[in-house]
Nucleic acid binder design. Structure first.
Lengths: 747, 747
DNA sequence: TAAAAAGGTCACGAGGTCAG
DNA sequence: CTGACCTCGTGACCTTTTTA
């Protein structure tokens, strides 16, 4: 019966066999010569060309004309495509019995199916590609057990049946390159009639090859991210819905992974510095270990990490090529970028503790995009950042409490004189603190008392004159005025809203957002999440000073100095309240600059209207700062590193300092935040959420539960600022950037 | 250039065009006749057959021979297969321009239905659903050889043609979700009218509705529910993970919908009776309005309610066919069932206020399934319920505080004598209340003082001897002893655990559960949720006396009587403390019976081990009662309806009553609970959560936030019970069922 | 009688195994 | 770790059964 079916055979032969190969993968052919004409049974293994039934064809002498005799059962299962070449049909007019032996006999002699990876003989269509058993097994192992290979040969290894085992990295790369992926595999019997997917799949892969699953350059990668974001923004008209969810989802993925890795974070085990994974505690420095990133390292895990490369979306469940490449490719790696940025900035170097802030500012200014100079408000901040050049060291700037001095004194002003208040504000201060008189030096005690009063709830109400732009506040208390970003922000910072009221207001939308976030991300979104995660983590590392490693190193140095007796006993230092306040604000300036820089690096942040960017920064930057400063706090020892990581201050001393009650709040936050043991990457994501998200109450368990704490202290901070401003209307003692950023009264 | 490329066209034509259609899905054809031969460009819309470049073919007269002239660009992307038929190749030798209009002209005339499971091309209507060969075969294998799959991805795997093989569990789930079932199979030729329907949607409806995969009768539905639940229980080894989430999700869906419909429930607007939607306030009685069910009514809304009927899975986002069917089909409707059950029970009738409790008990006993009589503990409760036949009216039973009386007096005991305490307990009472002496009547004042002391936190500690079985308590304070249900329950009721401790302990798992719950429900789960919701709502309506409507009607009657002056002034009534206490407990007995009945009707409840059922009931039934009694409280007028809805009592009077401080707590709860304006259906769901869920702190915003309140008062109740028990070791004055249910000391 | 779906069949590929 | 070999689920095709 079979011999009857296959009465005739025909053959498609390209003038350029190689083209045929490219298009069809391996071809199985049985040729029988008879009557001087070729009689051929063509059968591919990869569905690209299958003739499984009868057709008779004869070709003319010119090889351009074919004659086909159709049998009773014409079953043509596939068609070949030979672009840019002439196909020649060779036919036989007489029936020929096809023998299976004949088929196999000619296998390989003409067009044996070859492994697209190594060129060996293919054993079938595995993971969407004709491949041999070896490459099939290899690929399977790679995607099941996450493999971290490394190439020592510039990633240019040739993959042949003989060399394929010499470089796993390049072999896997080739596997991806030829289109292998779990999703591409098709189970079941190969259809005789190809009603399904052979075309698209094959074409897809061949056309996809140029845009290989491996990222080409960081620039290109960045472009893709932005393009994706842009698309989303365009589609939704607002960046909120998607971008925010992307952040939250990224964070969620991270936290989930974190929990898996570190067990229950809800145990109240206190710990000291570093909210990071234990792996990072090993003291490895600048090794480029993925562990430094925490979350990204998690993405390298084999399953569910949600990591996928944009150019290879189909392989999201498999080992990420991007990841593996990044782990090995050196400077292109985001991980290396983190370290690189750290190393390349002397001001961020932990070796240069003294000159940190002095050197930082120029670098920070370089970060601010000059091309956006037309944007007035952002520019303003940037310009202010440029202007700030605090003296290195601690006693860099001061203000004298002198009623005659109405001008602001910048950080370069005179030495050790005490700050003064302008006369018009003295009555306010006098009201609050009867002991304070014009011209009198603001003593530590007075300042302390003042801050105490400021944070007194009763006083708070009096002094928390709305720090938010009234017109904005009238619109759902949002610091964002544009319609787009307005919906992003709700929390009014120091808005005179009742806490309860605020909470209930926020919780509603948090729940709604949560709902959306909990949606399992789509392929595209997962990709986006990964990219955003990368960007955020990278932004964090490149802008955050007190990372785990930096703090740890600083700690080591501090220990050394302690042992050498080089450090003075902090408790013996005479505390100049003005100095302390100045130092506090001054030391924060470069940090603020960095936070602003961080914000600007958050993917999609620049898509928001400028005004809203400002508002978001104003709203959230202190919270980010607070979040970062948690690293500076050893909640076990109850010690606070100063932002320059030069001096450690015990909590009780901090408390006694002017503004001490406020600084002490940092400890309170750290006590809740640090036990979560977040990695730097997670802190970065959390920070981005602080900036971008409207509300995060009740979102990611304990982690997010610390946010109200941030909010509360932020509120206090606002009140303090307002109080201070009342006392010092000309912003004496406020570094301009600090004032600019934290002053919510945009007028 | 295009005209040059497409120099020639060819056409495959089957003898059975429809077969071709079937094989290729949609075909776009442009035919041009020239030289008497057909010249055709074939192009599919779904990539199954694409001829995108040049090929020339001519056919002989016999239509069995074709002549092909290959152009310079032969691009044949696919081939059609015509099984069991002879294909005819019709060719043209001359160049033909393809017109796009011609292509699009034929677009849409041929439809390829898609697989409802994975989205692939459907091969027909299999197991009640348009599905592909793969899913068809997969489902067949699943239902023939029982398969035990497991999902490692939170059971939320996307099912696409590419991913369908990656998770059998989710694939099967999806199969069920879209309505696949053996019963739904339709054999034989499809009725002609079905084929004529225009769109796929129309066809979907017409085909799906008549041959609904799942039967629509309540009985059968109930069977299926149980089957589904059974499956889940079997799969997971515990009912916890899935069933609990189903409850929570059902509640979530409801609350969400509620919020949509009723706006912000967080406003503290007080309101009186009824925690229901305003729509229900219209006074429509027994109209069968869906509004009576609240949540189910919401499900009838067009969007996102999460409601879906198994019989019409594809239309889960549209108006629920089950819902609409039920709304119209009369007695089969669950909504009508509610009303029916209400109407058919004279004891529940609001018209019969006086004899309510007397008549209720027999009916309650009928509810208890006699077939389960072998279950000793449940039986015990049931038997007790049967035994309880309190006298109608208020002064039904009393206890005399008599040291000689050591026997328990049931509700039929002698008339008006005061309760007595056994001598061995009098020292305890004496210690607490020096004024009380053996044999002395328990006056209102004494009782009041006693209860005051009982609820004194300091005293509470002394008297809250662990009411939980010690062996259970040692295992995470669970009232459930079996390994299965143990994990369900954590909250130890009146366990001597510190509140804070308890809270933090609970929150952890609540968050975990929350996370799971927040997962958007899969198709199957959504179906399950709907079914569970229905069952719960139905159970609630059929067992809850103070539903909105009943209370409203009672209110009306009360108003009438008030106006007629038929009611005595409550404040003038002589308060017999014993009477009050007796009345209180007595009036609760039928309610407890109903709550037990309600619990037993909760889907899956009977799957739990008997022992655990008892524990769950013991743990939660009072909370449910409390929840139901909230309806009896008008927080605006500060009035309390008695459970029989016969007498209204102002709060201050309640407070002055013996046990008044305890009863007053009801107001406290109602103040938090009633403003949520839950519908009856939602209250039912909430009640089921109270029974089933281990913890619900922090789960559904304000609603769930009221739970600690329930817990707290439950605790007080436990303490009170224990105190009372100490005073009355032989349970004098405790109706047996009350004692049985609320006594956590299982020994 | 033919359409249509259930059920069977078996070519296939994923994944596991284990000697090398 | 590799890859030849094995098992088993898959699904395209086929046969059988049911129904219009």
């Amino acid at each position: 019966m079979e011999s009857e079916m296959f009465t005739d055979r025909f053959l498609f032969v390209s003038r350029y066999p190689e083209s045929v190969m490219d298009c069809n993968g391996g071809l199985d052919m049985t040729t029988t010569t008879q009557d001087g004409a070729q009689q051929v049974m063509i059968q591919t293994q990869d569905d690209h060309l299958v003739v499984s039934s009868a057709a008779a064809m004869t070709v003319g002498e010119d090889m351009s004309t074919a004659h086909i005799t159709a049998g009773t059962d014409l079953v043509v299962s596939s068609v070949i495509t030979v672009p840019n070449s002439t196909a020649v049909l060779t036919m036989a007019s007489n029936p020929v019995n096809m023998s299976l032996t004949g088929v196999s006999a000619l296998k390989g002699s003409i067009k044996a199916p070859t492994c697209k990876v190594c060129g060996d003989e293919s054993s079938g269509f595995h993971y969407g590609v004709d491949s041999c058993e070896g490459c099939k097994g290899f690929f399977r192992r790679c995607i099941t057990q996450g493999m971290t290979h490394k190439c020592s040969n510039e990633e240019k290894c040739e993959i042949t049946p003989f060399t394929r085992n010499s470089c796993q990295y390049c072999r896997l790369k080739k596997c991806f390159a030829v289109g292998m992926s779990r999703e591409a595999s098709r189970l079941g019997r190969r259809p005789k009639r190809l009603k399904d997917s052979a075309g698209p799949e094959a074409r897809q892969h061949t056309t996809n090859l140029p845009i290989a699953p491996y990222p080409t350059s960081p620039q290109e990668l960045q472009k893709l991210k932005m393009a994706e974001l842009q698309k989303i923004v365009q589609q939704n008209g607002t960046i909120k819905a998607d971008l925010m969810q992307v952040f939250l989802q990224a964070a969620q993925v991270s936290f989930r992974e974190h929990q898996r890795n570190h067990g229950n974070t809800n145990t109240n085990n206190q710990q000291g510095f570093g909210t990071h994974s234990h792996a990072e505690n090993s003291g490895v420095k600048n090794s480029g270990e993925i562990n430094n990133v925490g979350i990204v390292a998690n993405n390298g895990d084999k399953a569910e990490s949600g990591y996928s490369s944009l150019s290879s979306p189909a392989s999201s469940k498999s080992h990420s090529p991007l990841n593996s490449e990044n782990a090995q490719s050196g400077n292109d790696s985001v991980f290396h970028n983190h370290l690189h940025s750290m190393e390349s900035k002397p001001n961020l170097s932990v070796d240069n503790m003294v000159n940190f802030s002095a050197n930082l500012t120029p670098s920070a200014s370089a970060v601010l995009n000059p091309s956006e100079s037309r944007d007035s408000i952002m520019d303003e901040i940037e310009q202010i950042a440029l202007k700030i050049k605090p003296e290195p060291g601690l006693n860099s700037s001061h203000c004298v409490m002198d009623s005659a001095s109405g001008t602001s004194c910048d950080s370069k002003s005179e030495g050790d004189s005490a700050p003064t208040l302008p006369p018009e504000m003295m009555h306010v201060v006098s009201t609050m603190m009867p002991g304070i008189q014009p011209g009198m030096e603001l003593t530590a005690e007075a300042l302390s008392e003042m801050t105490e009063k400021m944070f007194d709830p009763k006083v708070m109400d009096q002094f928390s004159f709305s720090p938010i732009d009234p017109k904005i506040e009238s619109e759902s208390n949002s610091p964002c005025s544009s319609s787009m970003a307005k919906s992003i922000m709700y929390g009014g910072g120091a808005a005179p809203m009742e806490d309860d009221e605020l909470d209930s207001y926020l919780v509603i939308d948090a729940q709604k957002i949560l709902e959306d976030v909990r949606q399992p991300p789509s392929e595209v979104r997962r990709t986006l999440i990964d990219q955003v995660t990368e960007s955020v983590v990278e932004a964090h590392f490149s802008t955050c000073n007190p990372t785990y490693q930096n703090v740890a190193e600083a700690n080591e140095r501090f220990q050394e100095k302690m042992e050498k007796g080089e450090l003075p006993d902090f408790s013996k230092l005479t505390i100049n309240p003005n100095m302390v306040w100045q130092q506090f604000t001054t030391a924060m300036v470069p940090e603020i600059t960095l936070v602003v820089k961080f914000c600007k690096q958050i993917p999609g942040f620049s898509e928001i209207e400028q005004e809203d960017q400002i508002n978001l920064i104003k709203q959230g930057s202190f919270e980010v700062l607070l979040c970062r400063f948690c690293n500076l706090i050893d909640i076990r020892k109850e010690e606070l590193f100063d932002p320059n990581m030069k001096i450690k201050c015990p909590r009780n001393v901090v408390k006694e300092m002017p503004m001490g009650s406020f600084l002490d709040e940092f400890f309170a936050v750290a006590e809740k935040f640090n036990p979560l043991k977040l990695t730097d990457g997670e802190i970065g994501l959390f920070s981005s959420a602080l900036i971008i998200c409207p509300d995060y109450d009740n979102i990611f368990m304990k982690t997010i539960n610390t946010i109200p704490e941030f909010r509360r202290i932020n509120k206090k901070h606002q009140v303090a600022l307002n109080s201070m401003k009342m006392m010092m209307p000309n912003n004496i003692g406020f570094p301009p950037l600090h004032q600019e950023v934290y002053d919510h009264e945009t007028n």
